[in-house]
C-alpha cells in the first residue's frame, strides 16, 4: 500500500512540477529497466565535471540547503552542470544515499568525487578552497575576476 502511495504521489508531483521539463538527465520515473546499482551511480557522478544531487532544480530549489549550493556555484560562474532532482524518485534517493554513504542532500561532486553537502560547500566557499577545487577541474572561478 505504501509503495502505491509513493508511486502516485511522485508521479503527481512530476506532473504538477513545471520545472520537470527543464531538468537535465532526470531518470525516467518508474522505468524498471534502470538499475540503481553502483555502476549506474558511478557513471552518473562522472558524467560531467560538476554534478549536483539536490531537491528541486537550480531554477526552483525545493530546500534551503540545495538553494545555497546552487547560489554558491552561480557566484563562481559554474553553469551548465548536471543536476538531479532526488525528489522525483524515492527509490533513486534512498539507493543513492546508501551508495554515496552520505545521508542528506544536496551532494556536490567534482570530477566524480564527493565534495560534500551544503555545510561543506559553504565552508569551502568562505575559506577560499572552493576556488582551488574548481581550478583543479579546469574552471576559473568568476569570483577571481572581481
Amino acid at each position: 500500500m505504501a509503495a502505491i502511495r509513493i508511486a502516485v504521489s511522485s508521479s503527481l508531483y512530476r506532473y504538477l512540477s513545471p520545472a520537470f521539463a527543464s531538468g537535465v538527465s532526470l531518470r525516467k520515473l518508474s522505468n524498471q529497466s534502470v538499475h540503481y546499482d553502483s555502476k549506474y551511480f558511478e557513471k552518473l557522478v562522472k558524467d560531467k565535471k560538476v554534478v549536483l544531487f539536490m531537491k528541486g532544480n537550480p531554477s526552483a530549489p525545493m530546500c534551503g540547503f540545495s538553494r545555497l549550493v546552487v547560489q554558491i556555484l552561480h557566484m563562481h560562474g559554474v553553469d551548465g552542470y548536471d543536476h538531479h532532482d532526488v525528489l522525483q524518485d524515492v527509490d533513486f534517493k534512498e539507493k543513492f544515499k546508501e551508495w554515496s554513504e552520505w545521508p542528506t542532500f544536496p551532494q556536490l561532486y567534482l570530477n566524480g568525487e564527493l565534495v560534500g553537502g551544503a555545510d561543506i560547500v559553504l565552508q569551502l566557499h568562505q575559506n577560499g578552497e572552493l576556488v582551488e577545487e574548481l581550478e583543479k577541474i579546469g574552471h576559473c572561478s568568476a569570483l577571481l575576476d572581481k
Partner: peptide, 26 residues
C-alpha cells in the same frame, strides 16, 4: 579533512539523521 569530519558525525548519528528533515553541522 571536512568530508571525513562530517562522515564521522553522520556515522555517529546515522539512526537519528534518518528521522530528521534537515541536519546541518559545523
Amino acid at each position: 579533512p571536512l568530508l571525513e569530519r562530517h562522515r564521522l558525525v553522520n556515522g555517529i548519528l546515522s539512526e537519528e539523521i534518518k528521522l530528521l528533515h534537515a541536519f546541518s553541522q559545523k
